[in-house]
Design a protein around this nucleic acid. Structure first.
Lengths: 237, 237
DNA sequence: GTGCACTATATCGTATACAATTATGCTTTC
DNA sequence: GAAAGCATAATTGTATACGATATAGTGCAC
């Protein structure tokens, strides 16, 4: 769709196979929180929805399970992932572990035009925050994640880029589940601060700001254990 | 035949679905370098080898492609991944980026019994280095990687653990392709040094040792670009 | 009325079948 | 003899079919 998404595609043949298209469509729905955690994704339903056979639907669901966005239970089916509080903590721990390193790499290689691109993304993010519609909120969620993905892309390491895509997507699920404040992507201003630090080549500060930013997102979550785990099962389909 | 599958399957959970078993078997074969990079993995051949249908073979190959161990080309088939020199550099860059962080986490949480376990792994590694058989060499490769995976496991972060599994597996492919010295897993002594530093809680030194260790592995590679890329295509099936 | 057993239904797991695409080899022509 | 084009074979892409497993609904016994 946008340049970011295109840049993230590693080896995309112009003709993506059917399963990949379905996978991407479902992933987008999950990340934009149109699909709630725990929602059952029946192979037949998915197939019917996209007018393909169960074969392709199944392949797409399998792919999403490798990314941690969908959990497939043997002989029971696929569900939009329902990350546990512990899983949520590990996701943010992983982000704190890798994002400073990615930021360092990115700051060393960044070009002026890429800085402009980052600022543009920030502007777009701010514009969407002002709006009040559902679609605007969804676009805002996406833009907020795109900031982190853009940095990974600038770092030039495709492996870290793919890993960040997974972490950002899973973060979206976690926020959907445990987020408290109405402003889900609270760190808009913090994004700007990071860019500013990058621009004046103050990498050390940029890393610290990034770490605080990630911790702030996590701090907005309510990660207390919910009742019994069995209860979750009762609602997951 | 079954004998092959059984021999490869070390920890066969009865609950694992067929495709997963096949995936694990092929992955092990790739990591232990019984399958060379570029080898064609035809769906029919894989299916016949494991006495299953193409459906399961295809699913297993897809799964391996998500891990970066197999590359599937549309309408052309699956091949054992043939990482480019650039890809190899990115793999090691990623390892340098994440392993110090993992090590820090692990060092903070490690228990005395886990230290013993690490030492035991090191001993096993050394024993295998002394032997001269093909199977010993394969086991050595595995043990060498297991050291890094064990640290990830001790860190307690499942996400980083899975990521490290991918990186270690792909490193094995890279070493198979570009490794020069006969001693492929050269860093046996370095593993010991890292453990020693961990044991005396000198985390800073441990991280530095780990970084050097990773760089040493990479330094043993010959990552100069090979002739034309087209040539590779000529041999890959 | 409660609990258990059994059947019925829906969904997943796997195999097979057919369509689409690519690779191969032969023939033909210059 | 070399190159181009067509026909054939091989392989992948996708759909359908059948068996296996879990869920739920019903009826019976107590």
């Amino acid at each position: 769709m946008n340049s970011t998404a295109d840049a993230l595609q590693t080896t995309s043949d112009s003709t993506e196979t059917g399963a990949q298209q379905i996978r991407d469509a479902i992933r987008e729905a999950i990340v934009e929180r149109r699909l709630s955690p725990g929602t059952k994704l029946s192979e037949s339903d998915v197939g019917n929805l996209f007018n393909v056979s169960r074969t392709l639907a199944r392949a797409a669901l399998q792919a999403l399970s490798y990314e941690g966005l969908v959990s497939v239970e043997k002989n029971r089916g696929a569900f939009v992932a329902y990350p546990s509080p512990e899983e949520a903590r590990q996701i943010f721990a992983a982000r704190r572990l890798v994002e400073p390193g990615i930021l360092k790499e990115a700051a060393e290689r960044i070009t002026p035009s890429q800085v402009q691109h980052l600022k543009q993304l920030l502007l777009e993010e701010g514009r969407l925050m002002a709006e009040r519609g559902q679609t605007a909120r969804r676009a805002e969620i996406k833009a907020s994640g795109d900031f982190h993905l853009m940095l990974a892309s600038i770092s030039g390491n495709l492996i870290m880029q793919r890993f960040m895509e997974e972490l950002v997507a899973r973060s979206s699920l976690v926020i959907a589940l445990y987020g408290q404040s109405s402003v889900s992507s609270c760190g808009h201003a913090e994004h700007g601060d990071v860019i500013a630090a990058i621009e004046r080549k103050d990498i050390e500060t940029a890393c610290h700001l990034m770490l605080h930013h990630i911790s702030h997102i996590e701090a907005d979550l309510d990660l207390r254990e919910r009742k019994s785990v069995g209860l979750r099962e009762a609602f997951e389909q």
